[in-house]
Simulated scan of single mutants.
Amino acid sequence: MNLRLLEIFRAVMQSHTTLGAARVLQISQPAVSTAIRQLEAQLGLALFDRRANRLVARDEAKILYEQSDSIFLMLHTLSQTAEELKENRYGHVRVVATPQLGHTVLPIAIQDLLAQRPNVKVFFDVRRSYTVVEKVESGAADLGLAIALEPELSSSVQMIPIASIGMVCVMRDTHPLSQASVLRPAQLAEHALIGLEMGSRLGPLVRGAFKSEQTPYRVNVEVRYSETACLLAKAGAGIAIVDTFSALAHAQPGSDLKIIPFQPDIRLDTWAILAKHRTASRLTMALVDSIQQCTRQFLDQAVSRHLLT
């Protein structure tokens, strides 16, 4: 059965005249009459009585109209789904991120994505950087977010820049060094330090900065995550040298933490990573756009609130 003919038939049933159906469908009245004759010929069944140039629906037409409701409801639903896919309002995206991003800008970006897309579902996980890369490469995640990745990874994954940030010192606002404009290894050497383990991506970078200035790197507490280091700094256990994202997550206005730039400058590039040989969905790329925008806003707000210089 031809769906277009069935659509014209339903318009006639709803409008009660061929002229009304023609207006609804924006076609000519003769085209409507021809379609009805074609449908009747296909069915081998008369659907209307012709009386004084009018079509009067038979019982068979009424039954066909009622039974075709489910078909057109399904087609309408399918059309809406196609439109939502086109506008990135339907589907799902699997994203995995390191804590620095997963606990700061990514929740904001996900909320921004979902605000206009109530039918979208996000699968969100927070892992260490090597697991982030592994999940993207294996196809277990559509999108990964991490910082300080090796440039050589671009041979196996697609890397999209998000931001470039530095490392900072975080301490209680009552700490003797809390009023410094910048802190270098020599100034930190005589104070309790909270360090990141050497198995992390950032720990060796901090150790390298101390070595370059010929200053011993001695830590009182060693931790795996920057977030843990910030919590210890907030408790007064010492000074933590962490990435800017983690620092901002804890040193918001009204907190008792202070952020001081660390020198020598350690640049940390932030990346969104995608599988190299798999086309990313429109929804995934929409989330990448949202992450880029939310990251800029997050960092700009930190500057305007005098949390960063």
Rank of each mutant, 00 (worst) to 15 (best):
R4K: 07
L5N: 12
L6M: 13
M13N: 02
M13Y: 03
Q14G: 04
L19N: 10
A21I: 11
A21E: 14
I27C: 09
T34A: 10
Q42S: 07
L47W: 12
R50C: 04
R51D: 11
N53P: 08
S70W: 07
K86Y: 03
G102N: 04
G102C: 02
Q111N: 13
Q111D: 15
D112V: 06
A115P: 09
P118D: 10
K121W: 07
V122E: 05
D125V: 04
D125H: 12
V132I: 15
K135E: 13
A141E: 10
I147Y: 05
P151L: 10
S154A: 10
S155V: 13
S155N: 12
S155T: 10
Q158R: 14
S164V: 12
V170S: 03
M171S: 08
D173R: 05
H175N: 06
A180D: 09
V182M: 14
V182A: 14
R184G: 10
P185T: 00
E190L: 13
A192K: 14
S200A: 13
R201L: 15
L202E: 01
P204G: 04
L205I: 03
G208I: 02
S212R: 15
T215I: 14
V219A: 04
S226T: 05
L231A: 11
A233H: 05
A237M: 07
I239D: 02
A247Y: 02
A249L: 07
I260L: 07
I266W: 03
R267H: 04
L268C: 05
W271N: 11
W271Y: 13
L274E: 07
L274S: 04
R278L: 02
T295D: 08
Q301F: 00
V303L: 09
S304F: 03
